[in-house]
């Protein structure tokens, strides 16, 4: 049952843009790209938030670290995007570990505010550091590439296939992220993260180093955010503080995760599939015309969120998963 859903879902994800592309539309490919990037970040956030159970409102810092690392390598040294992505992920994971370890002394809300603190400190650094372009940021120049393969290798798509190219790139990264996180979930890490979430003292009593595993969880989250940041930077052809250190890069994935089911591997995808198209459709229908710029789309979006919250008292975590997918219990539970 679950396997069938996976196969059908994968096929749909691969095939749906093709007729659209033939028709000459690119809009839904871009929506798909945004859905996948949000879902991917959500899957990453699930590690620290859903499994390890720590309030982390600052992962967008590592979205920025990834974007800047890859952009710097590309602009200053000519390093290709995918190598830059690996470097960005590594840099984010290491920086995150160094910054987070001392913070693990703090618990609960105090830890949550400390993650916000790092974000608040990162913003003016990004806005004033000349080497990384300060407030102007960095522009990522397009280079000429030989055909589709060249574009894919360089992670640079342009013209009518731009949206499609980035959609498939996001799909590949999303699939990789889910595969990796599925492995993490079943490994010792997954067990230890959830043990710390349920009861930190009890976890320590069976030999789990809670500070170390919290750092590991957050660094994994940081790595996923960095990968997302690199992808986004090459899509946007630029990196600047107000764009990559934007709060939305944590709130949107968190909301997608909450809607789809916190702590569930596929939850963020479900949430992103629900939330992102709504916001996109709202902005193209209600955000244009005479009322453009008056925020009508975001009012409706906010209302939808409020209504979802109000009528699912325990969040959407209580969606009847078991009834939908037979008696098999999802592995994340």
């Amino acid at each position: 049952m679950a396997r069938l859903a996976l196969v059908l879902g994968t096929l749909a994800a691969i095939l749906y843009p093709i007729p659209l592309q033939i028709q000459g539309t690119t809009y839904y490919q871009t929506v798909g790209f945004l859905v996948l990037i949000t879902a991917m970040l959500g899957v990453g956030w699930n590690v620290i938030g859903g499994w390890a159970g720590q309030f982390d409102f600052g992962p967008q810092v590592f979205f920025g670290v990834g974007a800047y690392t890859a952009a710097l390598l590309y602009v200053k040294l000519g390093v290709e995007a995918w190598l830059g992505l690996l470097a960005g992920v590594a840099a984010a994971a290491v920086i995150c570990a160094v910054l987070t370890y001392p913070l693990t002394r703090l618990r609960g809300h105090y830890f949550a505010i400390s993650t916000v603190a790092i974000w608040m400190i990162a913003q003016p650094i990004g806005a004033t550091w000349e080497y990384i372009g300060a407030a102007q940021g960095l522009f990522i120049p397009m280079k000429a590439h030989a055909g589709i393969v060249g574009s894919a290798v360089a992670l640079q798509f342009s013209g009518p296939t731009k949206a499609l190219g980035y959609y498939y790139s996001a799909l590949v990264l999303f699939a990789l992220t889910v595969a990796l996180m599925a492995w993490v979930e079943r490994s010792k890490l997954g067990f230890y993260f959830r043990a710390i979430r349920d009861d930190q003292e009890a976890a320590e009593s069976i030999g789990i180093d809670s500070r170390l595993y919290k750092v590991l969880a957050r660094s994994i989250t940081a790595g996923v955010f960095a990968a997302g940041g690199v992808l986004y930077a090459f899509w946007a052809l630029s990196v600047f503080p107000e764009q990559v250190l934007e709060l939305n890069w944590s709130t949107l994935p968190i909301m997608a995760t909450v809607v789809g089911g916190i702590g569930r591997l596929w939850g963020p995808l479900l949430g992103a599939v629900i939330l992102i198209p709504i916001s996109q459709i709202m902005s193209t229908t209600l955000g244009t015309g005479p009322l453009a710029g008056r925020g009508i789309d975001l009012i409706v979006y906010g209302l939808i969120i409020v209504v979802i919250a109000a009528f699912r008292p325990t969040g959407l975590l209580s969606l009847p998963w078991a009834r939908w997918f037979g008696r098999r219990r999802p592995a994340a539970a």
């Binding site: 968190i254 909301m255 909450v258 809607v259 925020g295 906010g302 969120i305 409020v306 699912r312 969040g315």
Partner: peptide, 18 residues
């Protein structure tokens, strides 16, 4: 879950701001 409160108040934030 406390995260549901976050979700709800982010919706409220969008609503009021806009």
């Amino acid at each position: 879950d406390p995260f549901t409160q976050i979700f709800a108040t982010i919706g409220l934030l969008f609503l009021l701001q806009n």
